[in-house]
Amino acid sequence: MKTCLLATALAALLPATAVAHFQLNYTEDAMIDRPGDVPMGLIFWHPFENGHVMDMGVPQEFFMVHNGEKVDLSDRLEPASFTGAANEAAAYRATVPVKRSGDYVVVTVPAPYYEESEDLFIQQITKVVLNRNTLPTDWDQPVGLPTEILPLNKPYNVIVGSTFSGQVLAEGEPVPGAEIEVEYMAAEPDLEAFATTKPTAQPMPGGSVVVIADQNGVFTFGIPKAGYWGFAALGSGPVTEHEGKDLSQDAVIWIRAEDMK
């Protein structure tokens, strides 16, 4: 209940431009054909509106889980500057070693970001699931984060026109009534240039797209368009303060939707 009240209070305080912050763990594809090191961009951005990019500090953790084994990837992080439509900001390049068949749950625990306009910190603990050879291994298992979204659909095999469901967890327990902000990656990054591309959609006129989880922390959202969709459970984490200021510790997951052909 305390977590739910915090999320509600933070959502009321933040303007539309602030709540649209989304941490990206971006790869060009979620389904990996060949073994090797997969390029990834870690970017803190507004990808739906192709808007302002925020400076990232050094991530507290960067790792993957494959076949139940946690592998530290922090030595694969490389500081870089990402160029958005409005500005440049500090971000990170990385590579993910995808070799054997199965799922690769890639997690970024970023340093808390200070939002000066609201005098609070934001920490978006973010995961994305890559897969090789269509063998499911880890996608439906929690990875032990302070807060996370557990997918209830295979997150790299979502069909446009169907739905995606997830369960919001904090310290392994469901978060009833969690508020989840939905983001479409309208402008997918060019990883070679490390810059934005032309957006393929515009934000909705009603502002941020939001869904509310039920008493078991479960939410469902209909997927209208192919591409990457992000879901952020606002203030769902147990940590509510950083350096003497309020902290919104959010759980983020990105999924990949495809048209049926």
Rank of each mutant, 00 (worst) to 15 (best):
V210H: 01
L191S: 10
A193T: 12
P238R: 11
A201R: 09
G217Y: 04
A195S: 12
T196I: 05
P238S: 09
V218S: 02
P238W: 12
E192M: 13
G207A: 09
G222H: 14
G217R: 03
F221Y: 15
N216L: 09
A213D: 05
V239E: 13
V210E: 01
T240Y: 05
A193P: 05
A232K: 15
A213W: 03
L191M: 15
P203S: 13
S208I: 02
I223G: 03
F231L: 01
T200W: 07
V210N: 00
G206R: 03
G230W: 02
A232S: 15
G237A: 08
T220R: 15
V218W: 02
V239A: 13
F194Y: 13
Q215C: 05
G206Y: 10
F194E: 04
A226F: 15
I223E: 03
A226K: 15
Q215G: 05
F231D: 00
A233P: 05
K198W: 07
K198G: 01
G235C: 07
E192R: 14
T196Y: 08
G237L: 06
P203Q: 10
P199Q: 07
P203G: 07
K225M: 15
A233L: 04
F219S: 01
I212P: 00
V209T: 13
A213L: 03
F219I: 07
A233T: 14
P199W: 03
P203V: 09
I223V: 15
D214M: 01
Q215A: 11
P205R: 11
V209L: 14
A233Y: 03
V218H: 01
A233M: 10
W229F: 14
M204D: 05
W229A: 02
A226H: 12
E192T: 15
V209Y: 02
G207S: 06
L191C: 11
I223F: 12
G237V: 07
G235I: 04
G222I: 06
V211Y: 07
V218K: 09
M204K: 09
Q202S: 13
G235E: 00
I212E: 14
K225Y: 08
K198D: 11
A201W: 12
V210S: 00
V211C: 14
T200L: 08
Y228E: 10
P238Y: 06
G227K: 15
A233E: 09
F219T: 01
F231A: 00
P238D: 10
G237P: 07
S236W: 00
A232L: 03
Y228A: 06
L191D: 06
L191R: 04
